[in-house]
Design a protein around this nucleic acid. Sequence first.
DNA 1: GTGAAGCACT
DNA 2: CTCTGGGTGCTTCACC
Length: 623
Amino acid sequence: MFSQASKEAIELETGTPAPRATIDTVSHDYKLLTDHAEIKELVNVLNEQQEFCFDTETTGVDAVEAQVVGVAFSYEKSKAFYIPIPMNKDGAMEVMAMLSKALENPKTLKIGQNIKYDILVLKKYNIHVAGALFDTMLAHYLIEPETKHGMDVLAEQYLNYSPVSITEILGPKGKNQKNMADLEPSEIKDYACEDADITLQLKQKIADEIDKEGFTKLLNDIELPLVNVLAQMEFEGVRIDEQALTAMSKELQEESLKAQAEIFKIAGREFNIASPKQLGEVLFDELKLVEKPKKTKTGQYATGEEILSKLANQHEIAAKILEFREYQKLKSTYVDALPKMVSPGDGRIHTDYNQAVAATGRLSSNNPNLQNIPIRTPKGREIRKAFVPAGDDHVLLSADYSQIELRLAAAFAQDEPMIDAFKNGRDIHATTAAKVFKVSLDEVDPTMRRKAKEVNFGIIYGISAFCLSQNLNIPRGVAGDIIKAYFEEFPGIKRYMDESIEKAKEKEYVETIMGRRRYLRDINSRNATMRGYAERNAINAPIQGSAADIIKIAMVNIHNWLKKESLKSKMIMQVHDELVFEVPNEETDYVKGNVVKLMMSAVDLEVPMEVEAGVGENWLKAH
DNA sequence: GTGAAGCACT
DNA sequence: CTCTGGGTGCTTCACC
């Protein structure tokens, strides 16, 4: 039924039928293996291969919590084996011990689809997957970073094959969906074997394309080695001080109620403050705070932070709503949510880093997202105090690249004034302010520095005068003058931005320092909005993406160094330009020094990469 | 279940 | 005259 629907969709789009092979139309040899002698024989054969594909079937999508139900292997097209893992602990460990002889063989290449998941789930069974890796999802991410990379779509695209849908064996998604553990091995066999078989077939096709497009080094030297680093980080997790969060929750609840009471008093009635619709009606229909309220594209009154901030000075209710929103956000998204994510197994929080979603090459983090823990406001940053090391005998070490994106812009642009500022270790925002406002460095006041900082950020994003004026709350003309002065002082930056767009228009893609590509197919569009978006990306993607490349290189190098030196320190978090480690007290100075060194030396550019590192009894203090 | 609004980070 | 900063993930509301 599922495949029928998608076939129709294809026919509608292309006007021609797309005959797609399935498990029922293609000959295959999928075997269920339970006999220990047969399993050992398979392991021997796998160890004779140069490469093989494997795929775990588990009880859930959360690798740290999931149990392995079975493992499928394939080393030859259309041929695969499914080995069920007994549900009892001893039986499971016995079979796993046999499989480990193949999975831990450093000489064979292991192929998988999202192989970090399998590596991670196997770590709980004390299996440490060794040898080189190939991941069809990651490989395809380099080829087409902005599309989907699921096995099903890859199979359709590369093999004209429609794999068995998971819903065919587990039932429709929802709370009634079955679990792999509810099924007999015989019911899982075809699905699991097909996954391994198809992934193996995909590898051949996608690896060819990787070579053809020139992504071999990026894949083999960065993305694939990073898989093991991320698996390790996710496995370690981070400890959370639950008591501290419980106390914060109580406080935020009280503060929220106070703000709510004042809002109701001013409004003259009770309503749901969290409902943008109701809030808009109260503020603009009833209280008539402004003459012509802005509307959102759906016709509602806009009540976002930007709008309310401008009203907050004259109208107490706007200030209170912002306060209320802040408390609610902190409470629901972090303070109350994080303790629920603590793993019962080890009392720690294990995020899932996604290596194949961000179009620029950055990582993303979810369940929970550890890359957006508050820091800006005093109440928000308190949450970072709840991120703590394993015990008194450990500390957290945080090391972050200082202004990495602006340094990259300066280096790529070969802009001498800016390179000079960085080479001499000057305060880049103050230096910019002095140049743009034509004063000496010691005449730069905090307002000028703040404005210059905003411009520097804007540059990286492909700024417009309108946007800068919004951010600085100044007239558009003045913002335009500042930008003009900026480009006069940093002519290399201006030239680089223009050349980036020109090159993008010609090639319809841009690339990072390591050759990661982002396609900008709208760059020659006649639609000004779409073209503008692509033009900003032509400037931002190489900068943001190169920063991502660089920290990934540093992560791989640091991981290898920690291993080589048999240190107990663990890398546990990455937040785009920052790495966090859990470090035994006695390793603090040594690890800190070398982490900084390895981060600085990840690439060699004309602009030095500065790294700031700190140590503390929690994440906030380490900053 | 899905999309919009809003907001947390870099 | 119009539009208007890159990249994410999570929560809540509102509607289907």
